[in-house]
Design a protein around this nucleic acid. Structure first.
Lengths: 232, 232
DNA sequence: GCTGCCAGGTGTACGCCGTACACCTTTTGA
DNA sequence: TCAAAAGGTGTACGGCGTACACCTGGCAGC
């Protein structure tokens, strides 16, 4: 038999394959579980092989951001600036929701990657097309902050995911909480109440996001209408 | 000589001393340089000694947040809700500005620490004292997001800190940039222009922060005045 | 058809990290 | 007085990112 055992002959690595595998891995196992060694294992390859395609882990993360951001959908059909921006940002939010690690990774990067720049360019273009001055556009982009990419800095993920303990301790902790942080407690209780269940599903992220976004967009609109200028 | 050599007898560790040392170290060398080993060295102690005072590095970070947040100044003297909130938040911003790593660390924590809860409680109290409904207060707190603690999610730190390269390459990169991201470039150029120097000092963070904050506060005020309700 | 190059995969090794665990010393309270 | 608790030490483990030398197979140029 002159033929060698013809092993499966795995398809060769490529930067693209590495990045996609990394995204898939982070989706499935969380970003904190992603290491060069584990990713290599996932690809059936020795760790150092990855370095032929990405310069470092930092660059890998940059690449992952590129993949996700590049997946943000196209702009809505021509309409007023407000609904155009709103649509685009909610689109970005959708893209990022599918990759829960993405926001955290984008924050950790020091500079914008090309895909992010391209995205920002498109949003700026919408304001400009709506007649916004360079000045106002500038500040407006700052005011949006990370919201422009569809995520916000919630202070904490979920207000009510404490480990189950015995009932007495639970009640004591609750009372202590109510005593020390009465307003926080009152608010939390009212929210839980609204949803019917006491251990309710927490807050409606989509609603909160749109609420704040619309508040800002309305503010922008008002400033624009009155010809706002940063140096009056 | 019955006396032993009476060595300097370094003051014993304590949780407080560990946390303060960690804060000082992060202030001076950056949060990414902070490791249990380095911190121990700084304190003239073996790494494992720290674990007698903090349970883990995670808890150390929590403690550092506590130290910083506890340093946020008291509330302004009785005044309307808007200036009270505004003053408090700008105060928080001041406290966090002194510790550039703090925002990043707060983001990385999964839950709020007691000092953060106490702080939030005080802000919620201001809205409630101003007559805000529980419902509106709830959404308003979400809309503020991390801004309530004085920091915002800027997408990138500094728009213009590229490594110096030769002039020709610089110009080429610039042109490429202007071609691919025309609106971003236009905006960047106008900002640099406003400040006189082309390599200008970037944007005025304090202005941007206050701009967005006031936009939100004005929005809150309007909603409050018109008796807004999330389920109309 | 041969040869030398080189892109891409491998193996080993280094220095860092957080921290488990057993140990020793010093302080303290009964 | 003396046990026990509290606080500091030493060693060790497994994991991390990645530098560096090496091998190998396919292909370009003669």
């Amino acid at each position: 038999m002159p033929e060698q055992p013809q092993e499966p002959r795995r398809t060769p690595l490529s930067r693209d394959r590495v990045l996609r595998a990394a995204v898939a891995f982070a989706d499935g196992s969380g970003i904190e579980a992603l290491s060069m060694r584990r990713l290599a294992q996932e690809l059936g390859v020795v760790p150092m092989a990855l370095y032929k395609h990405v310069a470092s882990k930092e660059e890998l993360l940059d690449g992952m951001v590129e993949v996700v951001v590049a997946g943000i959908g196209g702009r809505a059909p021509g309409s007023d600036w407000k609904s155009a921006v709103r649509g685009r940002i909610l689109g970005a939010r959708g893209a990022l929701l599918a990759h829960t690690w993405a926001a955290q990774v984008i924050r950790s990067r020091s500079g914008p990657t090309p895909a992010v720049l391209a995205y920002l360019d498109s949003v700026i273009a919408m304001f400009r097309a709506g007649g916004f001055s360079l000045d106002l556009t500038h500040h407006v982009m700052h005011a949006l902050g990370s919201r422009v990419l569809g995520f916000t800095e919630e202070l904490f993920d979920d207000p009510a995911s404490t480990a189950p303990q015995d009932e007495r301790a639970q009640a004591a902790a609750y009372e202590e909480m109510a005593r020390r942080y009465p307003h926080v407690t009152e608010l939390a209780r009212s929210v839980a109440h609204d949803r019917g269940s006491v251990i309710g599903p927490g807050c409606d992220d989509a609603f909160e996001f749109a609420f704040a976004l619309d508040l800002l967009l309305d503010g922008f609109e008002r400033l624009h209408a009155q010809g706002w200028n940063s140096t009056p």
